[in-house]
């Protein structure tokens, strides 16, 4: 069996070490063998088999940091759009895949999944924003990365949501005074609004499925 390599994109946006550690644990629990590398090197990212784009933070500062690393955006576009490598975006990593983000003014995203990142606006004023804590997801379609996970509760912390142009890209939704997309994907691209790396067994299980996923 071939060793797979997973690149965790290191672009200085939040707690990337947690993501790396959770993926390492998931790798041990999976049927695959391989390495998990925290990297910002465009060449290493293009050469890897799978990519994880983690992150915590505001859209504006994160997209600026990502595009500020020489060659990184080009490498990601090449790996994801041309070479069709499986990618998992987490939280802001998912949001950056949108066409535009509206946190701190309008900013262009990677435009891998058409749509906008807009404020959460729960219609019950008693609901607090950020949406912070454990909430359940409702599957909108079957996706191999969500197979055989016992709990449907995951850890969320966000004030913005991904509103896709094509609703078919919604894999799961979550209710918080409104239904919003809690995971989205198309083809080799997948993103979760929640944090699998902070979601104990369910999250590690999801990451294991991602490692084993061949779209």
């Amino acid at each position: 069996m071939k060793n797979i390599s997973i690149a965790v994109v290191d672009y200085d946006c939040g707690n990337i070490h947690s993501a790396t550690k959770a993926i390492e644990l998931a790798m041990i629990e999976s049927n695959e063998k391989g390495s998990v590398n925290l990297t910002k090197d465009p060449e290493e990212i293009i050469k890897s088999d799978k990519i994880v784009l983690p992150g915590v933070g505001a859209f504006e500062s994160c997209i600026k940091k990502l595009t500020g690393i020489d060659g990184l955006k080009e490498a990601l576009d090449e790996a994801v759009l041309v070479k069709a490598k499986p990618i998992l975006g987490i939280c802001i990593g998912l949001q950056l895949m949108a066409t535009s983000g509206f946190e701190g003014g309008k900013h262009s995203g990677l435009n891998w999944i058409e749509g906008d990142v807009i404020p959460l606006e729960p219609n019950d004023k008693k609901l607090k924003v950020p949406h912070m804590g454990w909430n359940n997801i409702d599957a909108k379609k079957n996706h191999p990365v969500f197979n055989d996970i016992k709990s449907s509760d995951y850890y969320f912390v966000h004030s913005y949501k991904f509103s896709p142009l094509d609703k078919e890209t919604i894999i799961s939704s979550t209710n918080y005074g409104e239904d919003f997309a809690s995971s989205l994907g198309k083809d080799n691209i997948l993103g979760t609004q929640f944090h699998p790396e902070k979601s104990q067994a369910a999250g590690v299980n999801l990451l294991k499925n991602f490692i084993e996923w061949s779209p």
Partner: peptide, 11 residues
């Protein structure tokens, strides 16, 4: 903090 974050998958 570093060692805890390595082993605990919760916030």
């Amino acid at each position: 903090v570093r060692k805890t974050a390595e082993q605990c998958f919760m916030p």
